[in-house]
Design a binder for these strands. Structure first.
Lengths: 233, 233
DNA sequence: GTCTATAATGAGATAGAC
DNA sequence: GTCTATCTCATTATAGAC
């Protein structure tokens, strides 16, 4: 007469689907609570599977995390690469800085805003992971997945601003990337401080504001003397 | 003949010092591994005390975290407030945007770069905590400690740019704050991508680059039509 | 492939000797 | 105030029935 309280035992899915359902749940909880803050038990429970299923399909928690990252990495990389290539060819090889910034930001914003909950979670979890040092040792090789894309982005910025020296270009891109990392998390601080006038969830508005804002920064660094560092020696 | 491997049993300190030593260790491990990733056992061990000492002086892990935040909050707030006030009075009430940005960033950079390891850990841990949503429920009230300071910062930016409308001002400040949050973590991505040309640990150089970069962004947003949002309706 | 059961460990917290 | 010992629970991981 006792009710099993565990929901249907789930013969609903084929293995592919099972893996996908688990990855979705992992994506969500890693995004919400971070790697250490999310337990594989909670992930299994959210996915309506037993704990053993995670072991069977993924082995360890680290491997589960790796596969969460890996599942969407190629899609994100190729979407951004395509966007950058389009900006370059549209401008015959010398794209404006605003166009490059937009080409870099827009795919992630598109996916986060309209790609479904999975993509939003994915980008938030990626942003959280990037906001740490390599103390979570196993994270670093995972994040290096994105290094080739970053090299491409920097190369396109270099096309756009051939007069900037390397350090200036890297600083400018760093500032853009740093801001974007926090923005993708949608932590809500701007909502609170602007009393709702600006919403961190309104990624479309943010894109429109970021493009001129950061392009002006690139312009400004391109103009100023690259001698700042010397003054401290 | 067995050696106690626990180090000296520490009658070395008075209670004030004991609390300080524990807070230092907590600060370090929370900064390195995040709230969930750091255990109070490891914190006790790093501080060379027994676990019971943390309970005795702080009660729960949450309370320990709160007191880590609280210990330096007033110093940080007043350093930044003083810096902002100085910028305002230096300019007779109408400070330039570069001056305001520098006044906002400089105290934190000063403390992180030359305030000792504790301050660096503190600011990294704060930055990590700000890069989450309120899923870690108890975090939110802790972070609200800084709301009055943020209101002051925004007010000074408003003095600097009275022609900007509220939304533009908040967006611009959000971008600056977002970038700063990641930068304080010193995650090292710019080091890797620039092959060491730019170092995320070189906060002095970063300050010098950020000031003109972000001031140009403020200038740019102040110029453009505040009608962007309307185009999407 | 899916689930149960359980091992093995580590966690936060508490009681109480000294 | 400091430390030992222990409780209780949650965690990752494994073994094995079905």
């Amino acid at each position: 007469m006792e009710q099993k309280e565990q929901g249907a035992p789930a013969r609903r899915y084929n293995p592919e689907q099972t893996r996908a359902v688990i990855l979705d749940a992992a994506e969500q909880l890693f995004a919400e609570h971070g790697y250490e803050g999310a337990s594989i038990r909670d992930i299994a429970s959210l996915a309506s599977f037993r704990l053993g299923m995670i072991t069977y399909h993924f082995g360890t928690k680290e491997e589960l995390f790796r596969q969460v990252i890996a599942r969407r990495a190629d899609d994100y990389v190729s979407a951004t690469a395509t966007s950058l290539d389009a900006a370059v060819s549209r401008a015959d090889g010398a794209p404006g800085t605003e166009a490059v910034i937009r080409a870099y930001l827009q795919p992630a914003i598109e996916l986060s805003a309209r790609g479904g909950a999975g993509w939003k979670n994915y980008l938030q979890l990626l942003a959280r992971a990037m906001n740490t040092r390599q103390h979570e040792a196993f994270l670093e090789p995972v994040l290096r997945t994105y290094d080739p894309l970053v090299r491409k982005i920097v190369a396109v910025f270099r096309l756009s601003r051939p007069e900037m020296d390397e350090a200036q270009l890297h600083w400018a891109f760093y500032f853009l990337q740093a801001a974007f990392i926090h923005i993708l998390v949608e932590a809500g601080i701007v909502d609170r401080h602007s009393h709702g006038l600006c919403r961190s969830s309104d990624l479309d508005a943010i894109l429109d504001e970021m493009v001129p804002f950061f392009a002006a920064g690139f312009d400004r660094l391109a103009r100023h003397a690259p001698a700042a560092a010397a003054s401290r020696r």
